[in-house]
Amino acid sequence: MYSEAVMDHFMNPRNVGSLADADGVGTEGNPVCGDVMKIYIKVDGEERIEDIKFQTFGCGAAIATSSMVTEMVKGLTLEEAMDVSNKKVAEALGGLPANKMHCSNLAADALHKAIEDYRAKKQAPQGAGQ
């Protein structure tokens, strides 16, 4: 039911864990639905994703898409990373079973939330200074 790439990312997930000094954190899904994905990013001076980690509760597809998205965007600019969609992550994995396309394919959304979190944090001190 799963492609070889999915099974590879599931069994050998890349970038598992958290970043204590993350610049942005994004969470998507909820435990009641059976999938939770949390993405941590570290952003460098050129607005590039310098480091990224994930934690995921969920099925094989949820874990594999999380792992894949971290691999796809590491080193990209935030703008480039915003272009990586759930669909592109699924494609990079050689496709997902139809019933996994919605609930278990939210890793890019979690990443986008992490980027938004970073941007909001960056703006907050300026706002506070006025």
Binding site: M7, M11, C33, C59, N99, H102, C103, S104
Partner: peptide, 20 residues
């Protein structure tokens, strides 16, 4: 994970189109 080790089991969760 069990299947990768050749162990066949099952789980009550079932993935439907909307949610697990």
């Amino acid at each position: 994970s069990l299947d990768m080790l050749g162990i066949a089991g099952s789980s009550g969760s079932a993935c439907t189109s909307a949610a697990i």
